[in-house]
């Protein structure tokens, strides 16, 4: 069997064994279910579909939670093995360095995807049983699950890079927290600050759009809060940019780039590292 798949399989097994997958699924399901139950209350007066309400509120919370879970899962990938002494052993086997990085990434990505699909899927089933919805609503909900998985996988890639870039586990943990703070909280605040100071003199709307592509969390927000008719209408307040100007394909491409580039960097750094 291919070493890549063996390593990925071992990571998935470890995730299931130490209950990480179960705990994550429960957290995501609890979050989604509570939003489904709460979300059915304010409809009717606004005229928005209940599913769209859930999609918008779930997307807003996903931005905070999923990247954190992804980083917690992946920051240990390489540095943890190095500290336990098993990295040397792993590399002493007939495996290539890229297979180690990619195998662990695939294992962690699959674990997180499983938890996200199961957790949000359970909420979707409850939603289908309680509220009326049309095909458009379900397309938005499926899109939410899909992009949440992509967001999580992007942060797994970033966490893997953090795990390879440093020598000690606490440093990697700190770096992971730093990445989360930067992308999820600080980036938007900084951007907002610049916009306020700038007053539109230098930064045009399209420049802002491009700047938003440099943050996977913002790309996710753009896709889910502004991409679709109903959700966009509802989320108008929270949409960060002038969303209409960017085709959805560009947004998905950017999110995919946030998966591929950190991963490529991780492989490149790991290839140069002395075990």
């Amino acid at each position: 069997m291919n070493a890549l798949m063996v390593i990925a399989g071992q990571e998935i097994r470890a995730g299931l064994r130490n209950r990480w997958a179960a705990a994550t699924t429960l957290i995501l399901a609890a979050l989604a279910l509570s939003l489904v139950l709460l979300g059915s209350a304010p409809t009717g007066t606004v005229g928005a579909s209940p599913v769209a309400v859930v999609v918008v509120s779930l997307a807003s919370l996903t931005i905070f939670l999923v990247p954190l879970l992804a980083l917690l899962l992946s920051f240990d990938a390489i540095v943890g093995e190095a500290e336990r002494g098993t990295l040397l052993l792993l590399l002493a086997h007939p495996v290539a360095r890229w297979q180690v990085v990619l195998g662990k990434f695939l294992g962690h990505g699959a674990t997180l995807a499983l938890a996200t699909v199961a957790g949000y899927g359970a909420a979707g089933v409850l939603l289908a049983a309680t509220v009326p919805a049309d095909a458009e609503d379900w397309r938005a909900y499926a899109g939410l699950i899909g992009t949440s998985v992509m967001l999580g996988v992007a942060f797994v890639a970033l966490g893997s890079l953090a795990s390879i870039a440093v020598r000690e586990r606490p440093t990697a943990a700190g770096l992971a927290v730093g990445l989360w703070l930067f992308f999820v909280l600080l980036y938007d605040s900084a951007l907002l600050g610049v916009l306020v100071v700038d007053q539109g003199t230098v930064l045009s709307g399209s420049a802002l759009d491009v700047l938003l592509l440099f943050n996977p969390a913002d790309v996710y927000r753009l896709i889910n809060l502004t991409g679709d008719g109903a959700a966009a209408l509802l989320a108008g307040m929270s949409a960060p940019g002038d969303a209409g100007s960017m085709p959805v394909a560009v947004l998905y491409g950017a999110l995919a780039g946030w998966i591929v580039l950190p991963l490529a960097a991780a492989v490149a750094v790991f290839n140069r590292r002395h075990p």
């Binding site: 470890a14 052993l89 002493a92 007939p94």
Partner: peptide
């Protein structure tokens, strides 16, 4: 490397796995 056996100094295996599982993992890698 496929024909080498290596025991690193002070190795600590994944605590949640069983001996059988760990050995199976390394056998598949090899």
């Amino acid at each position: 490397r496929a024909r080498l056996g290596f025991l690193p100094e002070s190795v600590a295996f994944h605590a949640a796995m069983t001996g059988t599982e760990l050995l199976a993992f390394y056998a598949r890698l090899k």
